[in-house]
Amino acid sequence: MAEINIERKKKPMWPWLLLLLVIIALIAWALYEMTNEPDETEYEEVPATGMVSPHTAPLMTTTTYNV
């Protein structure tokens, strides 16, 4: 009688590698966000002088032509 060798199919490894890469990416992003200091620039307000500076030229000019 002939002997039949039965081998189990090997499961693919790439889904586990993809999941591992996603987890590593999430951990790296979380560490970056926790250690990254925000670029907060403090601006000093200019004190109001109460003076108004006039404009020398008009802000908008309109012309109408009658034809």
Rank of each mutant, 00 (worst) to 15 (best):
H55C: 04
V52F: 04
E42D: 12
R8S: 02
L20T: 14
A30K: 13
L19S: 14
G50R: 02
L59G: 07
E42K: 07
P15H: 08
I6P: 00
T63M: 09
M1K: 04
V67D: 15
Y65M: 14
M13N: 12
L59A: 05
N36T: 07
I23H: 04
D39W: 09
S53M: 15
L59F: 02
A30G: 15
L20F: 11
T62H: 15
P15T: 06
M1E: 11
A28G: 13
A2W: 01
I27E: 05
E3A: 01
T56P: 03
A30V: 10
N5T: 07
L26M: 09
L31R: 13
V46C: 00
T49F: 01
E7L: 11
M34N: 14
A2I: 00
L31P: 10
L20Q: 09
P58N: 00
M60D: 08
A2M: 00
M51A: 08
P58I: 00
Y65A: 12
L19G: 15
P58F: 01
L59T: 07
A25G: 13
P58Y: 00
P12H: 08
T56V: 04
R8F: 04
V52E: 09
E40G: 07
W14E: 11
T62C: 14
H55M: 08
L31N: 14
E37P: 12
N5H: 02
E40M: 08
L18C: 05
K11A: 13
L20D: 04
K9F: 10
T61A: 02
Y65D: 11
